[in-house]
Amino acid sequence: MNLAQREPSPFKTYDEPERRRWMSSPFLAGMLFLLPSLVLFGVFLFYPMMRTIYLSLYLIDTQGEPLVFVGVENFINLFQSSSFQTSAKATGLFVLYTVPIGLILALVLALLANEKVKGIGFFRTMFSSTMGMSVAASSVIWMFMYNPSIGIMNRLLSGIGMSEVQWLLDPQFALMSVAAATIWMNTGFTFLILLGGLQNIDQQLYESARVAGVSDWYKLRKITLPMLSPTLFFVTVVSLINSFQTFGQIDILTKGGPMESTNVIVYSIYKDAFINYNVGSASAQAVLLFFCILIVTVLQFKLTERKVHYQ
């Protein structure tokens, strides 16, 4: 006789209606738990996003009410406007200035701060301190530093015998000046994440390398960077997105000027929507920026997939 048949099944079998009730209640409970974040995301993320895409396809009056469906006309207008092209170029340059330098700077600082030296805690705190500072506060600090007459920058320049520079008023320098301030502001965050990544690397890997006797440079290339690659990838994505969306320091330091040289897209969106009351154009720019960031991020995932070593 088959023993298995005599054993009562450990699982209760349900009739159809009963089973559906049994399944639906955990589902409902799960949804209930998700509800707060669903509502928050819905109200503050999904709805505005949909609304923006919707608005970008309409001609809109100054009150923000959509008048006529115009399809992609807003986008065509944008591509033909020289102002938008300047904006796009400024944004691209700004990302190019801030992201690579910011990352390398933070990486170097993190590598230094990861050494076991007396009093390293002090430097770790200093290097990460900009994270605790608001954009507004740090922008004001930099505004003073860039001030043509009383700022430290010009005093330094004149100290080494060079002519003074109108940091924020010269179209040649304004974008770079804002970029420098931005790098300083973002370093704290990037530094902290990278330091965390470094400290997560198994020390025995380095000890094993010490026994083998390889050089520090070899250790950096063959152990540290590969082991840090997931963290590096993460901060690169975040920094890129952050950089594309920079707004606060531009609003405070240059207001998009001089001669639109720092009028990055986010600032241009703001001006179009709230100063020129051209909500259609602003929405179209927002949509373009969104897809631009999306494409860059997806590309990054695709291109670096093979180079990132998740454990």
Partner: peptide
């Protein structure tokens, strides 16, 4: 000398 570590200390990416 050579050394073998408790958790082997192998390089996961190699």
């Amino acid at each position: 000398l050579s050394m073998v570590f408790q958790n082997y200390a192998l390089y996961p990416h190699l």
